[in-house]
Amino acid sequence: MSSNSHSDKDIYQVMLLNHQHYAVPVKSIISVLALEKILSLPDTPNWVTGVVHVRNAIVPVVNLSFLFEIDSLSDESRHPLLVLLRHPHDSQRWLALCLTDITQLIDTEQLAETSLRSSPHPCVKHVVDIDSQPLHLLDISKLFEQLMKDPG
């Protein structure tokens, strides 16, 4: 490694959902939990799986595969983890992503060396190739924005 002075901001957590790789800044992760019983909500888009009760709060659960229209399968056994994220500018606002697994930590320096692809969705900052696999770097603020948009 070239440097030991990385801040949390530079480090991303790579996560796996239905064979797709996503990454979020470590700083925005509150915790990783085993999947709770999700309560489905009526009148919501299919990518809002429902809500869970974690840390004394009712938190919406987002399925990225549905949001990015990558996968249309819905099977909770395929994503047994929940990663709880906080809003970058408002620590009182949370959301949860359902995941299959969490894998490695990477830093931005590593990402700089990889080739960039165009972003397929407003909630994705960049897509980069890592080990020939596309990695979606999520824009957490946009994800929250998307969630708070009232479909009604």
Partner: peptide, 8 residues
């Protein structure tokens, strides 16, 4: 559902 989600 607030403040994490909008009203339904």
């Amino acid at each position: 559902l607030r403040p994490h989600y909008h009203h339904i």
